[in-house]
Amino acid sequence: MTRDIVTSDSSLAPSPDIVGGHTLSMFVNNKPGVLMRICQVFARRAYNLDSVVVSRGRDPQFSRLTLGISGDPAGLEQIIKQCNKLIDVIHCFEHDERESVTRELALVKVLIDPGDRAEVLQILEHFGAKTVDLGASSIIAMIYGNSEKVDAAVHLLSKFDIVETVRTGKVVMARGEAST
């Protein structure tokens, strides 16, 4: 009989898969250095931050933080506990996708020939995206929704000449009366 191993060494972990698509939501003190403390928790354990969204809370004493992360799944519980242990973190949750709403926004700059413009606009309309800048040879589209939708729109646009993509990263909110 052997005991389940708790390890951050991926060669020993039960599943070597990297967790992707995990989203942590934190409520933290709005003070200099707080983000640095949180980043240290991740960096020390070889976790990568795929996206970071910080905004001031309704009470300006606090901030909201949404982190998209990837790394060894065996370490995720430890990461959440270590974040909660920080004095400046009021709480840190991982939200179940079914019980929360996740959205992100992307700005995509596409260079277009005049003949392609109609098709690009048609794709954007299909995804409910908006044209926020329109020039003779370029267009900036604003696409928003869940990450899969943004991915799909960017994918369809990729047959044209995308020169820049900027994404906000995910923001998450718990559904119903539950707190985020």
Partner: peptide, 18 residues
Amino acid sequence: PEKFGALAKIIHVDIDPS
């Protein structure tokens, strides 16, 4: 770690949840 206390039940008391 995987062989530690292999025959035993383990009770862990700690003030630090992490």
